[in-house]
Amino acid sequence: MDNKMRETTAYFYVLLCQDQSFYAGYTTNLERRLKQHNSGKGAKYTRVPSRRPASLIHAEAFSSKSDAMKAEYAFKQLTRNQKEKYLNLKESCL
Rank of each mutant, 00 (worst) to 15 (best):
M1C: 03
D2L: 09
N3Y: 10
M5T: 15
R6I: 12
R6W: 01
R6P: 00
T8W: 02
T8N: 14
T9P: 03
A10L: 00
A10G: 06
Y13M: 08
V14C: 15
L16A: 13
Q18M: 07
Q18Y: 05
Q18C: 11
D19A: 00
D19T: 00
D19N: 13
D19E: 02
Q20H: 13
Q20W: 08
S21T: 15
S21A: 07
S21E: 15
F22M: 07
F22C: 11
F22Q: 14
A24Y: 06
Y26H: 13
Y26M: 11
T27H: 09
T27R: 06
T28P: 01
T28N: 14
N29W: 07
L30N: 02
E31P: 02
R32N: 05
R32S: 06
R33K: 14
R33H: 14
L34R: 07
K35V: 06
Q36S: 15
N38T: 12
N38G: 10
S39G: 12
S39L: 08
S39K: 12
G40C: 04
G40I: 01
A43G: 04
K44V: 08
K44M: 06
Y45H: 09
P49G: 09
P49S: 11
S50Q: 11
R51G: 05
R52Q: 13
R52D: 07
R52C: 02
P53E: 07
A54P: 05
I57T: 09
I57N: 10
H58T: 01
H58P: 08
A59T: 09
A59D: 12
E60A: 11
A61V: 01
A61E: 10
A61I: 03
F62L: 03
F62W: 04
S64F: 01
K65E: 09
S66C: 01
S66V: 01
S66N: 06
D67Y: 00
A68R: 04
K70M: 02
K70S: 09
K70Y: 03
A71W: 01
A71V: 04
A71L: 00
E72A: 03
E72F: 02
Y73S: 11
Y73C: 05
A74P: 00
K76H: 12
Q77M: 12
L78P: 02
L78I: 01
L78W: 02
L78M: 13
L78Q: 05
T79R: 08
T79C: 03
T79P: 04
R80Y: 06
N81R: 10
N81W: 02
N81L: 08
Q82E: 15
Q82T: 01
E84V: 11
E84D: 11
K85M: 07
Y86M: 13
Y86G: 01
N88A: 13
K90D: 12
K90G: 00
S92W: 03
C93L: 14
L94A: 15
L94K: 15
